[in-house]
Design a protein around this nucleic acid. Structure first.
Lengths: 131, 131
DNA sequence: CTTTGTGCAAAGGCTTTGCATGCTT
DNA sequence: AAGCATGCAAAGCCTTTGCACAAAG
């Protein structure tokens, strides 16, 4: 059982609140700046470490911008993949059991056990394609 | 039409050759190391600048890994995916037609065009599982 | 009281940039 | 000859880590 053992601190609460207050993907630096502006001073390193924990616990999704910056957002579902617009970053969460099954089958066919998969899709969304 | 004008140099040729020699996405550092190993010494900065130019010219695609590393690949190349052993790094090439179709369909269903995908499988191979 | 979280600053890793030099055209 | 391309090293950015201190359980 993944016993999520983390302590309740003012800082971790602040980070979670900042995430909850915005449904869009935000960078660690943005969150840090937002917290600082709000008066909830939190060290940048703490922001990163808190986000890291949340990602490990599966409570937060993380993606990478074209700049290589990590952006975070509270998850809405369990396991899913992302389809991201390469232009505006609009993101759709994909929940497709076909991929899961496919990955597992490929593993079995090749004698590999405990197969994990990384799947990310990038495209141009309808709006951006139009403009 | 703006004819993309770039000079022919040993280095730019080497980078293009390295890209052409691998149908998968590769990082700049990987390309640099490969060139160095091959004897075609090329400065790391030059690798980056050449890749930058190729991307601007639309000859190369760029994506970001979860580590924030940029990975490059010549456009319009058929590629395959890999199933890698997390222990011994043994790698199997995977037929990709199923994934290609799946990715394209997901894109269409969501109104996304030109869908690129990153797919990586990691598991434990039979030998390593036995030991 | 013990363990984990926090801050700060330093260190890391990837990428970009300044500048003098070499090579292409 | 003129101007981009290259190398090297330094600088930039985002992120992680070491360490001492504070706080939670």
């Amino acid at each position: 059982m993944p016993r999520t053992q983390h302590r309740e601190t003012r800082q971790s609460h602040a980070v979670r609140a900042a995430l909850a207050g915005n449904q869009q993907f935000q960078s660690a630096q943005q969150l840090h700046g937002r917290l600082r502006a709000r008066g909830d001073g939190v060290g940048l390193a703490t922001v990163y470490r808190t986000l890291q924990r949340l990602v490990e616990q599966g409570e937060v999704d993380v993606l990478r911008t074209d700049d290589g910056e990590a952006i975070y957002r509270l998850c809405s579902r369990e396991h899913h993949h992302h389809l991201t617009c390469r232009s505006c970053r609009r993101t759709v969460e994909i929940d497709n059991s076909a991929v899961e099954a496919w990955a597992r089958r490929i593993g079995e066919e090749n004698g590999y056990a405990d197969v994990e998969h990384i799947v990310e899709l990038v495209g141009t969304c309808a709006d951006c394609a139009a403009s």
